[in-house]
């Protein structure tokens, strides 16, 4: 059983779909942050910093979910957990303090600019990781 544990992976069956959705969000968040920071950094430094942080978390989550092994599994749990926290905190801040968020980040309005997928994705991610852990 130890052998199987060492090979534990979330990226099998439907879990592979999850990885692709994460990959697309990594791409979307990274390009969005790159554009915001390179063209209009001074307009909303807080929002654009969070954009960049979101991009990094999506990249880490994508890679960690796609890879095998215990370390990747823990990293995936951490990244997806931080992502859920991020979308909740940034979502709430963006609703109450629109001054700081004149331009949307991936997580603004709980991800409403992206069909709320950023809010649903980490929940599905954590559920899937829990299932992976039990297998």
């Amino acid at each position: 059983m130890a052998d199987q544990d060492a090979q534990r992976t979330a990226a099998t069956g439907p879990g592979r779909i999850l990885v692709v959705v994460y990959g697309i969000f990594a791409l979307a968040a990274t390009s969005r942050a790159a554009v915001q920071i390179s063209t209009k950094w001074h307009e909303a430094p807080l929002a654009y910093t969070l954009s960049a942080v979101a991009a990094v978390i999506y990249i880490v989550a994508t890679v960690a979910l796609a890879r095998r092994g215990e370390t990747s599994f823990r990293l995936a749990v951490a990244a997806v957990g931080i992502e859920l926290l991020g979308v909740l905190v940034v979502g709430t801040l963006s609703v109450f303090d629109q001054e700081a968020f004149p331009d949307a980040t991936v997580w603004s309005g709980y991800g409403q600019g992206y069909l709320f997928i950023p809010l649903v994705l980490p929940i599905i991610g954590l559920l899937w990781l829990r299932r992976t852990a039990r297998r």
Binding site: T12, G13, P14, R16, I17, V19, V20, V21, G23, I24
Partner: peptide, 22 residues
């Protein structure tokens, strides 16, 4: 291309969904 490589690495009906998502 990346989506297709990822989809075909483990063939199942999930692969077909992956292509759709891509």
């Amino acid at each position: 291309p990346v989506g297709t490589v990822w989809a075909l690495a483990e063939r199942s009906r999930s692969s077909t969904v992956i292509l759709g998502v891509a």
